[in-house]
Design a protein around this nucleic acid. Structure first.
Lengths: 184, 184
DNA sequence: TGGAGCGGAGAACGGTCGTTCTCCATCTGG
DNA sequence: CCAGATGGAGAACGACCGTTCTCCGCTCCA
């Protein structure tokens, strides 16, 4: 196992554990046990737990947005592409072990004490909002729609996380559809 | 200082500190120092930190919903009462030290490890959603509007918490107004 | 006035956890 | 086959923190 391999294994294990149990209730030995990467190597690659947390959020951001974009790219009609965001949310909400939005959760846990984490949450949410804004623009819809569409998506993530249901995605989709049709 | 007074002082200090810094980064001695209630008395009233956390959330739930209801009761026209929720959100978001929704934050920090906290978050959100549903019914609007209106409010809380801006409240209000008018 | 109890300050205890260190087995090149 | 490097297992260290305990001063009533 070389350094890059150890890094991936550590990130896989850490991301899974942090998301499932929260950052502070996972200790470095849990990550060692789950990843098979020794503590010595872990600290060679990530000099502190906080670096590991940040690397997890960073990698997850890239992957999350890529998965969303790949799903949306399965649609061609511009307004359908906007609504596809909510269809993808429903798929995400239905995944095993779904526990809400990792960034919203991280903000609740660490946002007040780690400026680095708070900044990553802001960056992730801005990136998502920017993507939504691009879909809105591509559909020739007014830019003012982006805000409400984003709020519906955020609200759906929170409610799905708290209740464990996928329904909020459908609710948000229907509300989005009404707002879109209203703008025609 | 009697027991009831100590309880109130402890709750005041704990709620403020927990909200500002997160539960896990506030220790019992911080609460003792901020409240002036000795550790011995603190543990007489709340036998464990977790009980104190739960008591904070419980009291805050009652107060939060009372403040919202008092604001809404300043309006008489039924549809205006629905929209008043978002006006109140804007006031809340603008308060000094606003750091997002305490329940969403608590869910992110403790939801995965404390079933009691998770249940309180669900209960609070259901209560808020139920109140919104009653406003919708009183306005003679279709019950199906409640879901989207709730998601807009939740999304606004998250975005306001992360960005520190009050704008999400106005965005949510405008989207809500469109959804309402669309249902006439 | 005195002793009995109440309450506060803060030390102490026990457990947890981030981080580092020790020791040993296994490789590698000569 | 050997000297040195590498890396793993897990002990050790030090800090933090929830919770309890000790000690002492105060009060209150007989």
């Amino acid at each position: 196992m070389d350094g890059a391999d150890a890094r991936e294994r550590a990130l896989d294990a850490a991301e899974r554990l942090f998301y499932a149990r929260g950052v502070k209730s996972v200790d470095m030995d849990d990550i060692r046990a789950a990843s098979g990467v020794s503590l010595k190597r872990l600290y060679q690659v990530f000099p502190a737990k906080e670096r590991l947390v940040e690397a997890c959020l960073e990698r997850r951001d890239v992957q999350w947005r890529a998965r969303l974009a790949a799903y949306v790219d399965g649609r061609t009609e511009p307004q359908e592409r906007v609504l596809a965001v909510y269809d993808w949310l429903r798929e995400w909400f239905g995944e095993d072990g779904f526990r809400g939005c990792a960034w919203i959760n991280a903000y609740g846990e660490l946002g007040a004490t780690s400026e680095a984490v708070a900044a990553q949450v802001r960056a992730h949410k801005e990136a998502f909002r920017g993507y939504l804004g691009a879909l809105v623009a591509d559909a020739g819809l007014p830019a003012a729609l982006t805000g409400p569409l984003f709020l519906l998506a955020e609200g759906a993530m929170v409610r799905a996380g708290v209740t464990g249901s996928t329904d909020p995605a459908a609710e948000a989709r229907e509300a989005a559809r009404v707002l879109l049709s209203r703008s025609r």
